[in-house]
Design a protein around this nucleic acid. Structure first.
Length: 166
DNA sequence: GCCAACGTTGGC
DNA sequence: GCCAACGTTGGC
């Protein structure tokens, strides 16, 4: 199992929006960056765990943990002319080159972990999200980083464990 | 295949 | 809301 971080602007789609979705599950659509797409398409596996990160808010922070419940499939929003993610040029034979995954909210962090906290914490120096100018919206997270952040977020020994028993 | 222009991201 | 950093586009 692998760990990931995905960014979202809560004004557009927040952790609460995910929790309120049917079965706490939503399609993570609208990713329009090849590096991010490739992570989702090639490396996201069923049951992988994902930190949900709120950007463009004060403070930017990791707020919850989601789980991959469906692996990559074509991003339907690219085909929808009314969607802001519509991308006609990405369509070939009726299928977009962009993909989405379905994720399910599994645990809100009791204490959200802010970007400034991430930057201050020993062991997280290599995280992409802490780097200025880094805008990749889907990023891998190392197991050691996952464990540290779960602990900071108040989830104890959650890392890699059973989501049913945090 | 270069690179200037452009649009977007995201911390501040 | 600003704007630096970044990724993409398209003319050449």
């Amino acid at each position: 199992m692998s760990f990931w971080l995905m960014k979202t602007e809560p004004d557009v789609f927040s952790w609460s929006d995910l929790e309120r979705s049917p079965n706490s599950t939503a399609s993570w659509d609208g990713v329009r960056n090849y590096q991010a797409r490739n992570f989702m398409r090639d490396e996201f596996k069923l049951n992988d765990l994902v930190f949900i990160y709120h950007s463009r808010v004060e403070p930017p922070a990791i707020v919850g943990i989601a789980q991959v419940v469906r692996e990559a499939y074509p991003d339907l929003s690219a085909l929808d002319p009314n969607s802001k993610y519509s991308d006609e040029k990405s369509i070939r034979d009726g299928v977009s080159r962009w993909v989405m995954v379905d994720v399910k909210a599994v645990a809100r962090l009791p204490k959200e972990v802010s970007l400034s906290q991430l930057r201050e914490t020993v062991g997280l120096e290599q995280m992409l999200v802490t780097r200025p100018g880094q805008r990749l919206s889907v990023q891998p997270v190392r197991p050691s980083e996952w464990a540290i952040i779960c602990h900071m977020g108040g989830l104890g020994e959650y890392p890699g464990g059973n989501p049913a028993h945090p």
